[in-house]
Nucleic acid binder design. Structure first.
Lengths: 202, 202
DNA sequence: TGTAAGATAGTAATTGATTACTATCTTACC
DNA sequence: GGTAAGATAGTAATCAATTACTATCTTACA
């Protein structure tokens, strides 16, 4: 019963590292997560981390790749097989909120990365993620206009911006309150207002 | 003409410090602003800063007090004398965006402060600011319902959350794009969707 | 009113702590 | 037994904060 074998293959060790960072970011300012803290969290010495990553920046890049991959997969799966574009958007919204609730460190890291001035690999990863996210939204919005569910006069770009902004605001407020449950409770209520703002008059 | 007198009264020196931090935050990650960088920006030696502030934390607190005071004053003034609650909300929205465009470092600092785990004086200041902001919104929303401008079935709390979230999202995207002008352009378009989501059916 | 004494503000150098990263030795496992 | 993974013990750089000292302004009183 090796629950915690000392030696791990390199790729497994990298995976554990990423998960540790995500976990740590859930309870502290990501910019203050040191390599020593990461190592301690995974019962490793600090120096050993650099057997698997060339530098700290590479760790952050790996974390952001992990986030982008998981989040996009999650929202894609949630919208899969839903005919109504509006319902698909709602499903995406809720699954995104769920993802964040499971990993409260994720928005923290993204906010932190985005406000960095230089263009780090991690920041570029986040930018790509948001771009891909927007593409999916634009597609759904177009589809919604075609089906008559969404207002024909709707401003697509503004609608996509507001969709993401709505989530950001929701997350912010619950981080602020230190209460993840609040996000779950408020999500449907906030989305209801957004829905009313974009749907066609009936 | 003494444009840059070496000796300043303590309160003026503190004011200059705050303005320096706000300026620096406009072009770099606030968590990476060192006391040396602040001092250099105001043509002062690093140690001299500690003649006016007991520690770095106190500097951040002063900055956040400055932000809270100015932002609330700005939105209050913008809504002053406007009869229609909906129009008042729009005026608040736009003046908030304007404030951020003038001081792009401000949202950076607020985001950074909010994701801090410990309860620093600066963080508490931000929390108080948001609370006061919400109070103003709730008041306007109630007034809007009474006047019939806003939907009687509107969820007040969700509407307030979304108002703030909308601004946060807008700011985020323009910080991301590195283009403050975008915020000005998008603000009316995004608010239009929000307005449609909360106003009463006509 | 002029000036000495004290208060206030600033400089320059230094400190101890912390950080990312590295060099060298040790161990576990196929 | 060889090698991949980890431990140990460093280094150099950076940071907030402190210190001893100096410059400038303010004020009390002879």
């Amino acid at each position: 019963m090796d629950t915690h074998p000392k030696h791990l293959p390199a790729d497994e060790r990298r995976a554990v590292t990423v998960e540790s960072v995500v976990a740590l970011a859930g309870s502290q300012n990501p910019s203050e997560i040191t390599t020593a803290a990461i190592a301690k969290h995974m019962n490793l010495t600090q120096g050993a981390l650099f057997r698997h990553f060339p530098n700290k920046e590479a760790i952050w890049q790996a974390v952001m790749e992990w986030v982008a991959e998981r989040l996009l997969a999650r929202i894609d799966r949630s919208a899969q097989g839903i005919e109504s574009p509006l319902a698909a958007m709602e499903a995406m919204f809720m699954s995104h909120i769920e993802f964040v609730a499971e990993h409260p460190g994720v928005p923290r890291m993204m906010f932190g990365e985005l406000q960095r001035a230089e263009s780090t690999p991690a920041k570029r990863m986040v930018q790509t993620l948001i771009q891909r996210y927007s593409e999916r939204l634009h597609h759904l919005i177009e589809k919604g206009k075609a089906s008559g569910e969404l207002s024909p006069s709707l401003d697509n770009e503004a609608a996509a911006t507001l969709f993401i902004g709505t989530i950001q605001g929701l997350v912010m407020q619950s981080l602020l309150a230190g209460d993840v449950g609040r996000m779950h409770r408020d999500a449907p209520r906030v989305f209801a207002i957004y829905r009313r703002g974009i749907r066609s008059a009936q």
